[in-house]
Every structure is written in structure tokens, then in C-alpha cells.
Amino acid sequence: MGDGSKKKAHVEKIKKAFKDKNWNEIKSADSWVIFKVMSEFVEGFEKLAKIGPCVSIFGSARTKPDHKYYKMAEEISAKLVRHGYGVITGGGPGIMEAGNKGAHSEKGKSVGLNIDLPFEQNNNIYIDQDKLINFDYFFVRKVMFVRYSQGFIVMPGGFGTLDEMFEALTLIQTHKIEKFPIVMVGKDYWSGLVDWLKNVLLTEKNISEADLDLFHLVETEEEAVEVIDKFYNEYKLSPNF
């Protein structure tokens, strides 16, 4: 399909989405959505309430197995299991696969919160089959990550990775959830973003200086796990809200 055909198909899809509906049609559709959302919350709460302390690993679905960040995520995950944690990922390929693979290699809990996407995402083979949950709604999936993760390991990634990280930072900043460690791995990758937070957001007084302490920037696998361990030497492990 050429670029012109793709654009035309995209325009038709948008037109279809904005097609006029009467209020009864909208109300009926909304009712079904409510039940679907409820079912996803119920399944998530029931399964994840049983898994115990876990750390979530985020990062790009596009990272290949021979990439250094894939290997780092795999090793971080294995170390977390050896330190008594399970591992939660988004269930897909790339960094998510590396996280599940590391947990699986150490016979630890390997959880996958998979999202149904029209491209690139299928659940990886390293998830415990009784700990694989499939979601249609990003917002339900995000609740599960925040509620049942005792820490976030944020590997290099794209919009989805940034979305998860800033969601957690916002909830902690606004005291909607208890503080938990957020660890950004890879100084070369993240330092530009951190500089922007300091030089723009902080300078413009859109965040406070204390907000910069809500995350940790590290370079090695050992440092990443150390941040998690150090935090829970002081605080009790529990769901976040």
C-alpha cells in the first residue's frame, strides 16, 4: 500500500470514528465499555495481589537482544530476583522481554502486563503463564503497574516509557501514592532530559528542587538494584495505594 493509499485509509478511519451517533447508541456503547473496564480491573487485582514484592522494568519494545541495554535489563532483572523481588514488565519484546528473561533465568516471578496493539506487541515467551494479563485499556494497565510495583527501573525507551515514568512521578509529587524508587538507567541516554528538567522546568519554577529527588540516575546494573535495596532497608514493602 502506497503513502497515498495509507493516508486515504487513515482519513476514512478518522471519519468513521467521528460519525454522528445518537445518544442511545453512545449510552449503549459506554455501558459495555464500563463492564470491560471493570473486568480488566478485577482480573488485574486478583492476579497481582498474590505475587508479592515486584519491581517493574520499562524500556523500548524495539531494543534488540544484542544491544547493551537489553543485556543490562536482563542482568538487572536477574539481580532483582536474587535479592528477593519478582519482576513486572509490559509483556512485550525488547527491554520487556529482557526483563522477563532475566527473572525466568533465576526462576523468579515473571509477570507480563500485555497490551493489545495494532503493531509490534505480542507477549514474550519468558512470562509465567499464570502471571500473564492482557489489557485493552492503557489506563487500567497503568494502575496495575503503579499499585503493585515496589520500584520502577526505567531503561532507555520511547513515548510509552516516558509516559509510565512521568505518571509515577506525578502521582508521587502530588501525594496520591506513597513514594517508591524510580531508577533511570543509562546516563548518556537520560542526562539530556534531566538537564532539561533542571534548566527549564526548575528555572521556570514549574517544579520544585525537591522534585528532582524523586528519581535516581544510574549507570550500572549494580547501582540500579542498590537503589531499590537501600530504599526498602528503610521502608516497608506494600501496595502503593
Rank of each mutant, 00 (worst) to 15 (best):
I95V: 15
P181W: 10
V37H: 04
L193H: 05
K8E: 12
F138T: 01
N100H: 00
G86R: 07
A9S: 12
N240K: 14
D66L: 05
N199I: 03
D188K: 14
I57L: 10
S56D: 02
P239S: 11
V111M: 11
E204S: 11
E167N: 11
E209A: 15
E106N: 02
N206E: 06
K50T: 08
V87I: 12
A103I: 01
S191C: 06
V200F: 03
F180K: 05
G112T: 04
F159S: 00
I26Q: 10
T161W: 02
F135R: 03
G94N: 00
H216L: 03
G2L: 03
V225K: 01
K236A: 13
N122C: 09
F139Y: 09
M165A: 15
L217M: 07
E222A: 09
E46V: 07
I34M: 15
K71G: 08
E75D: 15
E120S: 08
G151L: 02
H104I: 00
F231K: 06
K198Y: 10
N114K: 00
F18A: 06
L201I: 07
E209R: 08
D66H: 11
S238H: 14
Q121A: 06
R141N: 02
E43Y: 00
K71M: 14
G44P: 07
G59C: 10
I115H: 03
F166P: 09
F35D: 12
S39H: 06
A9C: 02
